[in-house]
Simulated scan of single mutants.
Amino acid sequence: MKRIAVVCNYRLNASRIGGMDRFFVAYDRKCKAYGFDVKWFFSGGKRFSFYKDLDIEICRKTSVENCFLSFQRKEKTEFDFIITHFVELCTPFFKKVKKIGQPYVISVDHNPRPLNGFPLKKKLKNKLKGKLYSCYIDKFIGVSNYTKTQILNDYGKNLSSKTEVIYNGIAFGEYALRQQANHGQFIVASHLRSSKGIQDLVNAISILDAELKQLLEIDIFGEGPMEAELKALVKEKNLEEQIRFCGSSPELPKLFQKYSYLLQPTYMECFSLSILESLAANVPVITTPVGGNLEIIEDGTNGFIFEAGNTGQLSAIIKEILQHQRTIAGPVNHLIENKYYLEKMVNDHLYLLKL
């Protein structure tokens, strides 16, 4: 029996079962069907019933990388494959794992880059790390063409022969389809940090005319370090009737259908699972052209695009929607069913195991 270790800088959260949770469980099931033994390492949170069939280590006292290395030293376990998700690429960690049994190492890059790129010092450091440690990674995986390009820019064009794209996919059958216009009801599904641009959304709503404000409702699902600051900003702008903070919810697949649009004013993205989830529920998306967003959102077809940080543009789009001057008429869910579905994502990752 071949053994796989999956090392994820990812916290388990029973209140938010998202696309990656569904991927992890589906991937584990499919690997076992092919005779693999899979050991999972997560950076935090708590095991809950959704993960009941997975062999899991929760790493609470140290980084998930150090936790994995400690496990190997203690258990003297050798793995045929080591796969990382959300872990920084090209670090000494990969050199250390290669010394134990010579596993095949796959690193999946989900990590977004800053809107204006890294500063020069960081760029030089990444180039050096690429020279020192990229040889210990057998396969680099970007979750979008944008991400693949950034891997090569960061760590060296010479990595192109061992860098591939595997798009994220979701279990579209889990999502109830929006059947009605639900005019004026918007959803945000996001981690609450500054790079997600939700502060721009609040400011964009604040400059709408009073009569238009009365026509809209925005529900924000998610948690994060900026939550208190965002709530204070909403209060300062007198928008508490328009904007509600709903926390995290495992029921999002059923809730998306209540809304007319997903609002995602992000500054940083690789390939957004929230966008895929929204489209799967037949809910178009208002977002920025960062990361891999333009690989799935076509302006005027399945969503609307505005410049990141441009609150005036965002406000104008919302205004025109509320005034029925701008709309997405056709269904937007078919792209997910045909191209960005969970089974395809799982099978594409299984192919890396040389099946």
Rank of each mutant, 00 (worst) to 15 (best):
R3Y: 10
I4Y: 01
A5V: 02
V7S: 07
R11C: 04
S15V: 04
S15E: 12
F23H: 10
D28V: 06
K30Q: 13
A33T: 11
W40Q: 08
S43Y: 06
K52S: 15
L54A: 10
L54V: 06
I56E: 08
I56H: 05
R60F: 08
S63A: 11
V64L: 03
V64D: 08
S70E: 13
K74G: 02
T77L: 10
E78V: 15
F79V: 12
D80R: 04
T84K: 04
T91I: 02
K98S: 12
G101E: 07
P103W: 06
Y104T: 09
V105Q: 04
I106P: 00
D109C: 15
H110A: 04
L115E: 13
L115D: 00
F118D: 11
F118G: 09
K122I: 11
K123I: 13
K127H: 13
L132P: 14
I137K: 06
F140A: 11
F140P: 05
N145Q: 15
T147I: 11
T147Q: 15
K148M: 14
N153R: 15
G156W: 12
G156N: 09
S161P: 11
S161N: 15
E164H: 09
V165G: 12
I166N: 05
N168L: 09
I170P: 00
G173D: 10
A176G: 04
L177G: 07
R178M: 02
V188W: 00
V188E: 01
L192I: 02
S194W: 08
D200I: 06
D200P: 06
L201P: 04
I207C: 14
L208G: 07
A210V: 14
L212E: 10
L212H: 07
L212F: 01
K213W: 09
Q214Y: 07
L216S: 04
E217G: 09
D219F: 00
I220H: 04
I220C: 08
F221G: 02
E223Q: 13
M226F: 14
E229I: 05
L230M: 11
A232C: 09
A232N: 15
V234D: 03
K235M: 12
L239D: 03
E240R: 13
E240C: 06
C246V: 10
S248H: 03
P250W: 00
L252K: 04
L252C: 07
K254H: 11
L255M: 11
F256E: 00
Q257V: 10
Q257G: 01
Y259M: 02
Q264P: 00
T266P: 00
T266D: 05
L273S: 12
S274P: 08
S274A: 15
E277W: 00
A281R: 01
A281E: 00
N282F: 01
I286Y: 08
I286C: 04
T287E: 03
P289N: 05
E298H: 11
G300H: 03
T301D: 05
F304D: 05
I318H: 07
K319V: 01
I321P: 00
Q325V: 11
I328G: 06
A329Y: 12
P331S: 14
L335N: 08
Y340S: 06
Y341C: 10
H349K: 14
L350R: 01
